[in-house]
Computed example of a mutant assay.
Amino acid sequence: MIYAYAKLTVTNPEALAAYREQAGPALARHGGKVEQGSAEALVLDGAPDLPDVAAILSFPDRASAEGWINDPDLADVHALRRSAGASDIVLLG
């Protein structure tokens, strides 16, 4: 199992709502899922910029995570997420 940290700063809530409808099936296509998501992140240490939405994603392995982000059939789903605002996704491992 491998994990990814996703953070979003939302500027287009309508696009985020549309993305959320498609995000689960898009992740599942590559064995991924949202382990935990929150719109109420809390800083425990340091002074990071808090996102509007943060999530921990899981994938069976690195190849599955890379397959998800690079899947040409999911390009529109990723574009929808990006149109919702700034987003960063970091693979942990």
Results as ranks from 00 to 15, higher is better:
26 A>Y: 00
2 I>L: 13
79 A>D: 14
78 H>N: 08
27 L>Q: 06
32 G>W: 04
84 A>Q: 04
44 L>G: 13
92 L>D: 10
12 N>T: 03
62 R>C: 00
37 G>M: 06
74 L>P: 08
11 T>C: 02
19 Y>V: 02
49 D>N: 04
89 I>T: 14
93 G>C: 03
21 E>N: 10
57 L>C: 05
14 E>P: 01
57 L>T: 09
81 R>H: 05
60 P>F: 03
70 N>W: 01
61 D>V: 09
56 I>W: 04
81 R>A: 14
88 D>G: 11
16 L>I: 12
19 Y>A: 06
54 A>F: 07
82 R>L: 05
3 Y>N: 07
64 S>H: 04
73 D>G: 06
93 G>L: 07
61 D>I: 09
28 A>C: 03
53 V>Y: 09
12 N>P: 05
84 A>G: 08
82 R>Y: 07
32 G>T: 05
61 D>A: 12
63 A>Q: 12
38 S>R: 08
67 G>C: 07
51 P>A: 14
26 A>T: 02
39 A>R: 11
69 I>F: 13
74 L>T: 10
29 R>P: 00
59 F>Y: 09
88 D>P: 02
68 W>K: 00
79 A>G: 11
75 A>Q: 06
29 R>M: 14
9 T>V: 10
63 A>W: 01
8 L>I: 02
64 S>R: 05
22 Q>F: 00
8 L>D: 00
52 D>K: 02
10 V>G: 04
4 A>S: 13
24 G>K: 01
34 V>I: 15
18 A>C: 01
